[in-house]
């Protein structure tokens, strides 16, 4: 479980004015097994928030608890990083070794896990992301989506309870996006891993159980995707998009048609439009 209480942070230590705060009083609790999407404009503080969850950044005000461990407690730093892992945007800059399975083993090696247990974890992690076939390949020969799955396997080998993703699909093509999103949802549904995923892609945010919107270092919305996206005007005011299907329904309604607005995916949209035609 992740508990964030009244968290503030500023990159600019010298000036503690409210204007210079990257995070300004964040309160957020993420329960075990949840899938939370974090949205927000560029520079709203999403990445800063994510880096607090595994003690890469430490709170200047307030507290962050990961499974009850305070991130300010230095003796717990490594336990926290093991419990709440993180995957970044660019897979190229996260892969350390020249062979896939060596890279997946990296985290477990750092934790001092015995070799036969590392072997078991590597097999498990590669299986979980569906990359067992590629275990002996060189990472630089893989596609972007495959590389990102390797990066995910690399943190799964730590057996984390939570994985924080910072725009995991931003550098991928549509097919890479799809395979990474499938992997992430599967980790949540099948393996029970808590997911916190930062994204700019609204269709990906729809996969989550809960959507959190960050703006100017504060959380301004925290609700189910359906409730969040049905208020298209509000999202626009914040400067965010809504999923394409929601957008279509919204425009149709504005044009005077009797259609409901809380639509999230293509399927629902098609059904609603067919209903209209009857």
């Amino acid at each position: 479980m992740i508990e964030i209480q009244n968290l503030t942070y500023s990159y600019d230590r010298a000036d503690d004015k409210v204007g210079g705060l990257a995070l300004n009083g964040i309160n957020l609790t993420v329960n075990d097994g949840e899938f939370v999407a974090v949205l927000g404009r560029n520079g709203s503080g999403k990445s800063t928030l994510a880096k607090h969850i595994n003690a890469i950044l430490l709170p200047m005000g307030g507290y962050v608890y990961v499974d009850g461990m305070d991130t300010l407690d230095e003796s717990k730093t490594w336990d926290i990083r093991q419990s709440a892992a993180m995957v970044f945007q660019n897979p190229d800059n996260q892969i350390v070794a020249t062979i896939v399975e060596e890279d997946v083993a990296f985290a477990a090696e750092n934790l001092g896990v015995p070799p036969d247990e590392i072997r078991r974890r590597v097999d498990y992690a590669l299986g979980a992301v569906g990359m067992t076939k590629f275990r002996k390949e060189a990472p630089h020969l893989l596609s972007g989506g495959q590389k990102q799955r390797i990066a995910i396997a690399g943190v799964i080998a730590m057996k984390p309870k939570t994985i924080v993703f910072d725009e995991p699909t931003a550098m991928l093509d549509p097919s890479g996006r799809k395979e990474v999103m499938k992997t992430i949802t599967e980790l949540n549904r099948k393996y029970g891993i808590t997911i916190i995923m930062i994204t700019h892609n609204m269709d990906e945010a729809v996969c989550a159980d809960r959507v959190v919107v960050v703006d100017k270092g504060r959380i301004i919305i925290d609700d189910k995707p359906r409730n969040v996206f049905s208020d298209v005007d509000k999202m626009r005011r914040i400067g965010l998009d809504v999923p394409q299907a929601t957008q279509i329904a919204f425009e149709l309604k504005k044009a005077g048609l009797d259609i409901k607005c809380d639509i999230l995916d293509e399927q629902e949209c098609v059904e609603e439009i067919i209903k209209l035609c009857r």
């Binding site: 595994n54 890469i56 490594w78 990083r81 093991q82 892992a85 993180m86 970044f88 660019n90 190229d92 800059n93 996260q94 350390v96 399975e101 060596e102 083993a105 990296f106 985290a107 477990a108 090696e109 750092n110 934790l111 001092g112 896990v113 015995p114 070799p115 590392i118 072997r119 590597v122 990066a151 690399g154 943190v155 730590m158």
Partner: peptide, 24 residues
């Protein structure tokens, strides 16, 4: 890249060679 890699390595609990085991 070096900067991002360093953070990613820290996230994967890298803290030097001490106490490190190997897959092979």
């Amino acid at each position: 890249r070096a900067d991002e890699l360093a953070v990613a390595m820290e996230c994967r609990c890298y803290r030097g060679g001490k106490g490190r085991t190997r897959l092979n």
